[in-house]
Design a binder for these strands. Structure first.
Length: 433
RNA sequence: GCGAUCGUGGUGAAGUGGUUAACACAUCUGGCUGUGAACCAGACAUUCGUGGUUUCGAUUCCCAUCGUUCGCCCCA
């Protein structure tokens, strides 16, 4: 019987990969312009890395990780996100020793979560993100938010909704958590079972419950603003003001909390609603963290980071046709005619490869009808026809597949001619678009 | 973890307790020995996700299982 791909995983084949490459290039380039270079860390890590960073109270750690014992009886986990690995490597390599802060890293690669697949959500998915560690300032918080915003712009996104909120520092958060706990304890008997569970684990998470009856209770709940320390309050208003002067639009969302336990101070999400009203949840999200580095065995350094879901971006980019120029093509498709010496044709094919033009040949001579169809399927710009006549006279018959013009070119001149006609044709194509 | 939905060729799909399993597109061959159309004639599912049950007989009913798509939860 046929072996199927694992649930929630997908193959991306041939031409479809071009969209992903375009997106990944654009994201990496934006990160680069802000001074972030890629860190590439392993896909498997010790389970403990995630229980300590993402947090035991998070859904991710409690029920969504691919965890297994290896042959040495170590508990390992396929990473459910990439931040933890980045912080671990910063600690392991003592990148903080030079005191040259912030340490900037970007990352891109697969992550795994055991969830039910649905729109924009898979069990294997890819994340792109950045982390800035060691500088505890609203400046770097804003830089990361802005980087994400511009990354989306570079993919031609318009109408991005940036939601932001602050969770405050430790003191703010502790006070607020206690206030919430006290408040919800009185009302919990009327609330949904998930909220009952959240009250025990992390009362902050009750705030983004969507059950209607619960919403009424949540509206009356204590608000984070009233529990922020003056430091946190000031930091958040500086953040907001700077975003304003950068002309980055945002919505304050007091109920925005995050499912990962390590966040404090500013948190944010990028949302996009397509023209047909479809949403894939957040395209990207991030926030500031105060204790993550210390928790993973490093010094007491703060950080800020964000991440995007590549598949979600790809789906929107494709649905909304945000990128136009991503199509594959061959410069030349070589057609052997009749019982021409196929080895000679192959030699020419090889020669064109070496000149650097994407080209392909038909490996056997067929009806011209069939050969032209193949050329069209590959979006070739030109066909090169070679039969006995051409070989004898040492010429090539080159046909422009768009205009149907056909010329005969001496084999010796091919290098020069190829360069000119390909350039010209690309210019023409771009003008047409 | 919960709820719904759907699984028939390379693709889109119709259909029925007993059929040669329609139709269309794509592909291949020939009509037409070196120029992409159209047309015509052919070819193309040892079979209807997998396993089992009922039945004289199952692609069709039933059960299970795997997978798809979508929603909840949560998340990127």
């Amino acid at each position: 019987m046929e072996v199927k791909p694992v649930k929630g995983t997908h193959d991306i084949l041939g031409a479809d990969i071009i969209l992903y490459q375009r997106i990944e290039d654009a994201l990496a380039k934006t990160a680069h312009t802000y001074g972030y270079l890629e860190f590439r860390t392993p896909i498997i890590e010790h389970t403990e890395l995630f229980s300590r960073s993402v947090g035991d109270s998070s859904d991710i750690v409690r029920k969504e990780m691919y965890t297994f014992l290896d042959k040495g009886n170590r508990s390992l986990t396929l990473r459910p996100e990439l931040t933890a690995g980045i912080i671990r490597t910063i600690v392991n390599n003592k990148l903080y020793a030079s005191q040259d802060f912030p340490i900037k890293a970007s990352y891109i690669g697969p992550a795994f979560r055991y969830e039910r697949p649905q729109a924009g959500r898979f069990r294997q998915f890819s994340q792109f993100g950045v982390e800035a560690v060691g500088l505890d300032s609203h400046l770097i918080d804003v830089e990361v938010i802005s980087l994400g915003y511009n990354a989306l712009k570079s993919l031609n996104f318009i109408d991005i909704t940036l939601k932001i909120n602050t969770l405050g520092d430790d003191e703010s958060r502790n006070n607020y958590r206690e206030a919430l706990r006290a408040y919800f304890s009185e009302h919990i008997k009327d609330m949904c079972s998930d909220c009952k569970e959240r009250l025990k684990i992390n009362p902050l998470r009750i705030l983004d419950c969507k059950v209607e009856e619960d919403q009424k209770i949540i509206k009356q709940a204590p608000r984070i603003q009233d529990y922020l320390t003056s430091d946190s309050k000031e930091r958040f208003s500086k953040t907001v003001n700077l975003l304003d002067s950068l002309k980055i639009k945002f919505d304050l969302d007091e109920n925005l909390v995050r499912g990962l336990d390590y966040y404090s101070e500013v948190v944010f999400e990028y949302h996009y609603i397509s023209r047909d009203g479809k949403s894939f949840g957040a395209l990207g999200a991030g926030g500031h963290y105060s204790h993550l580095v210390e928790e993973l065995g490093g010094p007491n350094l703060a950080g800020v980071g964000l991440s995007f879901g590549i598949e979600r971006l790809a789906q929107v980019v494709e649905n909304e046709k945000l990128l136009f120029d991503a199509f594959p093509f061959l410069a030349f498709y070589i057609m052997p005619i009749g019982d021409v010496n196929i080895e000679k044709v192959y030699e020419l094919n090889e020669k064109i490869h070496r000149l650097g033009y994407p080209s392909e040949m038909a490996y056997e001579s067929k009806s011209l009808k069939a050969l032209f169809k193949k050329a069209e399927k590959r979006s070739a710009l030109f066909a090169i026809l070679i039969g006995d006549e051409e070989l004898e006279k040492e010429v090539l018959t080159i046909k422009n597949l768009r205009t149907k013009e056909q010329t005969s070119v001496a084999l010796a001149d091919f290098d020069n001619v190829a360069n000119n006609i390909v350039e010209e044709e690309l210019v023409e194509l771009n003008e047409e678009r």
